[in-house]
Design a protein around this nucleic acid. Structure first.
Lengths: 128, 128
DNA sequence: CTGTATCCTATGTGATACTG
DNA sequence: CAGTATCACATAGGATACAG
């Protein structure tokens, strides 16, 4: 579980856990919730406002869209711009860090593409 | 992470790729639970038996170790070998798919190393 | 040693109503 | 339009006891 120069994780200043364990966990903390990955994906194509995002994420509740966006903003993954108009207009777009997440997601896609057959086979063996 | 629609790959908004290539969500389903990443990390160095794993994962409950290993086994990430001895001995090790997850984790580490400063700055701005 | 079963709590999520 | 507040529910996870 090594390979890259890695800073200490936020929640483990003493460095008790492995670096991979702690830093990889940051990614899960950032986009591991139910809708975060979808939101990042939707914003990949550019800037969207609140209602547009809601339309891009079928099934998301009003509350969860707000909550997800707040978390992503707090983690520096999305940038939020409020236009002081009536009615209000709020634009969301990915930050550099947010765009960097796409590399990770692509890595995930590569892994799925490479091993999904085995995964499904294992699940079938398990009775799924 | 259940029930949400599977997004297209972030670099493939048109959905040109196959479904297998676009299921980044599989990764979260596989190692997105509380202890799964730790377990994969611990098994990175080789084969471990149940008790050894428990020692490698401080704080994990008896039940969750079993549950986590069952899920990883069902997803074809770990391989489970039961030795018919008394007392029983069970060995766990990563499959090829499990070892492939390390590339993803390395990608996560790269991302954290590159953007953690901005993440922490954003959290500070948010009052954290 | 390696599990399984049960109960309990905390948390994430959704539905709904309300506000500037 | 964008966001907050409240209630209700499902589920993940921990403590504990039991079993092969």
């Amino acid at each position: 579980m090594t390979g890259a120069p890695i800073p200490a994780a936020v929640d483990d200043p003493a460095g008790v856990r492995t670096r991979a364990e702690t830093t990889a966990r940051e990614v899960f903390a950032a986009i591991g919730t139910k809708w975060a990955l979808d939101a990042v994906d939707a914003l990949g194509s550019g800037t969207l406002r609140f209602t547009e995002l809601q339309r891009e994420l079928p099934g998301i509740s009003h509350k969860m869209l707000t909550q997800t966006l707040r978390a992503l903003e707090r983690d520096g993954i999305v940038d939020r711009t409020v236009h002081p108009t009536v009615p209000p207009r709020v634009d969301y777009r990915l930050t550099a860090a947010g765009r960097g997440l796409r590399d990770i997601v692509n890595g995930m896609c590569d892994w799925s593409g490479r091993y999904l057959d085995e995964i499904l086979a294992a699940r079938t063996r398990a009775g799924g």
